[in-house]
Design a protein around this nucleic acid. Structure first.
Length: 593
RNA sequence: GCUUCUGUGGCUCAAUGGCAGAGCAUCUCACUCGUAAUGAGAAGGUUGUCAGUUCGAUUCUGACCAGAAGCUCCA
């Protein structure tokens, strides 16, 4: 095993290791609870799982027993052997495992049906695997959780129980991993964001409807102002369109057919004798009305429309998560109406803008790009348009992405109902990925709305549309900022940039004088002249992650100085008010991190 | 929506089928202090909500509401 191929740093070997762990997990479960039926058990990015159909639930003490049995199996050093069987014999071997039978029946004709055997346990599996359970370090295996998961990932199927686990070749690697997970949880925006009073939720308001407290609202306000100004520089025209509309608009847009479940409907959707309204889940159909305001010429294009747009989506109750997944959110929305020949340049500008914005707030480094495509085989009639139109839209987007040198993954069946998307993805502290920013090409909807322009040749032509965001949805972005910075937002976007602390009552007036001087220059400043001890006040400011503290006592009053300390603990010493203000201004202007 | 788990003052957590307790935070008073918890006192609760079982429920049961992780879905 000295060959480099077989080190844990090699992702392929790691997956093999974890895959074998999942077999050991299944073997342990079958030894302890023979009535449990096996589904599938792959390796994942971090560890492995096995899906099981069990009459009881895997509580922590059951997991403990399973884990102990796994350690035993590792110690037994069972040889892991591969063999193949013809279909009939394979079905006979697995006749007591209904999920395996289903898998075998779905294997294409002529494909080898392979099994792996370790001791008394045999599993249908393509492999590869380690050569022995003895290769797995038993005391560096940990079962982390048990949750529900649908058979074959389809919510119409039975819910099975999924046991997640992790394993390493060495015990201290496992300990380090577990510690890292604990540390990551401390950055969880859902905990930190509430603790630092950025947001809260209240039973009587309802799920997915967070209250932005003054600090959260302040950060979102300054991000919005900044993005709106940036978009103006990029030629966007700001619009303000209604938050709801009659059912007829959504019929025209296709939302009524494709998205009704996700909308909040006001009134009876079936009763056509009365008006029925719905809160908007997307801005598109509203903003198109701006374009439709009058006849457009090719000279009007590209028309770039931007809006800080509040949307409402009736998510399933289990979907909500802090500020990342909510039912009402505000997005840096925009639609570009353009001539086909402008598509690449405008798409590029959208991407440049999004990347600039994400880079400036400090999120770009950890973003990944996903080209979200339709699924030609999707049976649910989820997509508008013809196969030809989709192939064309995706060909164009692929071309643009290649020209721009964007590295991306492909997501099949991830497209919007009207077109393919470039999604910019970000992971939360638990490793769960969500879309931060999206840029979408739409060659279908303009026609539905009767959007046309008169071209040079006098012909009426249908424009293309780009749907895009620059910073995505502000609530979600705030959540990622809190997690990325562990609550210590960079000075330029910190809700409170400076806290002025007086050491004695004698310095109180001076403290307000200094604070007001900074406020006049546009900085966000709070004053603490309470009778608490200095140590206490510093601790409070640090706990609340205020970037700068100004500490004022008799010496500072005499010398007309301010004593400055950073939240990191670094002491900048005494300086003049002007020097500090200039330092702060530089930091904010350059949006230094 | 589904699986599993959780719900006691603003926060962190005790306790119990029979008067609900502590620390932090808050307020008052004292202290006026130079870098991670100054001292004393006060106030704060229909134990998420509604039913049921019981002489008696915060505790047991059910439904609902809300929160967490995962699944499914999505910005």
């Amino acid at each position: 095993m000295s060959d480099n191929k077989f080190t844990f740093e090699n992702p392929e070997f790691r997956r093999t290791y974890w895959h074998s762990c999942s077999h050991v997990l299944a073997q342990a479960v079958k030894r302890l609870y023979p009535e449990v039926k096996l589904a599938i058990g792959p390796a994942i990015d971090e560890g492995f799982y096995y899906d099981l159909d069990s009459p009881f639930s895997f509580t922590p003490d059951v997991l403990e027993k399973v884990e102990a049995e796994m350690k035993k199996i590792c110690k037994e050093k069972l040889k892991i052997e591969r063999f193949e069987l013809p279909r009939a014999e394979a079905l006979e071997l697995m006749k007591d495992e209904p999920y395996k039978v289903e898998l075998i029946n779905d294997l294409p004709e002529g494909e080898a049906i392979s099994f792996y055997k370790q001791g008394e346990f045999t599993d249908l599996c393509a492999g590869p695997h380690l050569d022995s359970t003895g290769r797995i370090k038993g005391n560096a295996v940990k079962l982390t959780s048990a949750t529900g998961a649908y058979w074959r990932g389809d919510e119409h199927n039975k819910m099975l129980q999924r046991i997640y686990g992790i394993a390493f070749p060495k015990k201290d690697q496992l300990d380090a991993w577990l510690k890292e997970k604990e540390e990551a949880k401390k950055r969880d925006h859902n905990r930190l964001g509430r603790e630092l009073e950025y947001f809260n939720t209240v039973d009587v308001i309802g799920q997915g409807l967070p209250i932005l407290l003054p600090k959260g609202a302040r950060v979102i306000q300054l991000l919005q102002r900044w993005v709106e100004d940036l978009e103006q520089e990029h030629g966007y025209l700001l619009t303000k369109t209604p938050l709801m509309a009659k059912r007829e608009l959504y019929k025209l847009s296709g939302h009524w057919d494709h998205y009704l479940d996700g909308m909040f409907v006001l009134g009876d959707p079936e009763d056509y004798s009365k008006d029925c309204f719905a809160l908007r889940p997307m801005t598109c159909p509203f903003q198109y009305q701006v374009y439709l305001n009058r006849a457009r010429s090719y000279r009007d294009l590209p028309m770039r429309l931007g809006e800080t747009s509040t949307l409402f989506r009736n998510e399933d109750s289990g979907e909500m998560h802090g500020l990342i997944r909510v039912r009402q959110f505000t997005i840096s929305e925009g639609h570009l109406v353009l001539r086909p020949d402008q598509l690449e340049e405008e798409f590029k500008d959208c991407l440049d803008l999004a990347k600039y914005v994400l880079d400036t707030v400090g999120l770009l480094d950890k973003c990944t790009f996903r080209f979200s495509q339709w699924d030609p085989a999707n049976p649910n009639n989820k997509y508008e348009g013809t196969a030809e139109q989709w192939e064309e839209a995706q060909r164009v987007m692929a071309q643009i992405l290649d020209d721009l040198g964007v590295e991306y993954d492909i997501g099949i069946d991830e497209a919007a109902f009207y077109g393919p998307k470039l999604d910019i993805q970000y992971k939360n502290v638990y490793g769960k990925e969500d879309t931060l920013v999206t840029i979408q090409i739409d060659m279908l909807l303009a026609q539905r709305y009767g959007m046309v322009y008169t071209d040079k040749d006098g012909e009426k032509k249908t424009p293309y549309i780009i749907h895009r965001t620059s910073l995505g949805c502000y609530e979600r972005t705030l959540a990622y900022l809190i997690e990325t910075y562990a609550g210590a937002l960079p000075t330029w976007m910190a809700p409170e940039q400076v806290r002025v602390l007086s050491i004695t009552d004698r310095a109180a007036d001076y403290a307000y004088e200094v604070a007001n001087g900074l406020k006049k220059q546009g900085f966000r400043v709070e004053v603490d002249t309470s009778s608490n001890t200095l140590r206490y006040k510093i601790r409070a400011a640090q706990t609340e992650k205020v970037p700068y503290m100004i500490i004022l006592g008799d010496k500072d009053m005499e010398n007309h100085t301010v004593s400055v300390r950073c939240r990191s603990g670094e002491d900048l010493g005494a300086m003049s008010f002007e020097d500090f203000a200039a330092r702060l201004k530089t930091e904010v202007d350059t949006k230094a991190r």
